[in-house]
Write a protein that binds this DNA or RNA. Structure first.
Lengths: 223, 223
DNA sequence: ACCTGAACACCGTTCAAGT
DNA sequence: ACCTGAACACCGTTCAAGT
């Protein structure tokens, strides 16, 4: 059951533990990420983790750090601000999408890792050059990054953790609940029910989201 | 220390408990909301709560329900879709703003309360009338509601729980971290540091956010 | 219907101690 | 430097029992 049950007993390390924690979160959700669970998965005492991390929050910081570090930022180039911005946001989205169950950690932790700082610097810089004041660029950049996370965490039919059976069960319950709504009071919700339960076309969902965000920025951009 | 230490020993009830839970979350944050803590605050055994709630998650559902129920939806009127939409989003924002520490609960729980369902129905309906297809209206409505939450949870300088001293300490630490960044590598971040730490003009922050969202919707709206 | 008592399996964390 | 052992204070939850 160990997440990396290599017979070669490797030394523990911050990076190794963080990688295991991320993998665990991806498989079983964030609630499964527990000091004690990580310990047994790494064949070690719970207290061993406290050598590598200050406390549990630092472990979660480590998970977030890994995801931010996996963002492959496009080369700095010149071109229309909106195209540049889009490229960066697409890169962030691509890094977060593989980790829907860990994404809840990200928003409050951008400024807690080198990779997150680099990302924030980049986005703020782009907005500044696009004409935003310093406070507006700051707030908009922060909101944009959170929005990418939201796009992933609130995707309809996001695969929850747990066994397939458990998920089917939950899916059925949700459908039953929606279908039982009064057609007089909730006509649109009834029509929308199936689109809440699963995302038929993920690519167009995310493409729409990106378009929305770029349009939003354009809308409040000082001319 | 009880949250409602009324000498008149009232009977427990779902609503009373949920109200106490929300008040507690507002004061001390969601981590403080614990079955056992609620029990002692209400001078009762932890197990007493299980009569009124299936489990802890149901308690959290109760908190979210209260916030959604506090949304004062504007009268249904006809007028340009964007003005109508704005009014509704403003109403949602007004309901959430008083509860920044509980807001993290809201996004995944819209469809779990009557008030949330009414809200979703309303927004989807508006988007449908504005020309959106059923799937697009569903996804956009869901994203919009999450975005209002994001606006509140990621407001710079959002007041964290804990004593004033503890917060000042945290604030100082953050400032120190930001100020210590390399000016060559993070020029924009340094310029932005103060705007991360506190929001100088809350009203313009939220007004900007609303403008952003409406512009986003306009941007992806089918003509 | 509404609440208590005792018990269980699980947490995060500290502190002293080992190598 | 890196890990263990024992212990503490806290969780959520079940089950049987009381009124």
């Amino acid at each position: 059951m160990a997440s990396s049950p290599s017979a070669t007993k490797e030394r523990l390390s911050r990076e190794l533990l963080a990688a295991g924690a991320l993998a665990l979160a991806d498989r079983e959700g964030l609630e499964a990420v527990t000091i004690r669970r990580l310990a047994t998965d790494n064949s070690v005492t719970p207290m061993a983790l406290y050598w590598h991390f200050k406390d549990k929050d630092a472990v979660l910081d480590g998970i977030a750090e890994q995801i931010y570090a996996s963002v492959v930022l496009p080369e700095q180039a010149d071109g229309p601000w909106n195209e540049q911005l889009r490229e960066v946001l697409v890169a962030v989205l691509a890094a977060i999408r593989p980790h829907p169950l860990a994404a809840d950690l990200l928003a409050p932790r951008v400024m807690k890792s080198e990779a997150g700082l680099i990302l924030a610097e980049r986005v703020i810089g782009m907005l500044r050059r696009a004409g935003f004041s310093a406070p507006d660029a700051t707030q908009t950049a922060s909101f944009l990054l959170c929005s990418i996370v939201t796009l992933v965490t609130s995707e309809p039919g996001r695969h929850a953790p747990g066994s397939d059976d458990a998920r089917d069960e939950l899916q059925r319950a949700k459908r039953a609940q929606l279908d039982s709504l009064s057609p007089k009071q909730f006509p649109f919700l009834l029509e929308s029910a199936r689109f809440f339960l699963e995302c038929e076309d993920e690519e167009s969902y995310f493409a729409n989201g990106m378009d929305f965000l770029i349009a939003g920025v354009r809308g409040i951009r000082p001319s």
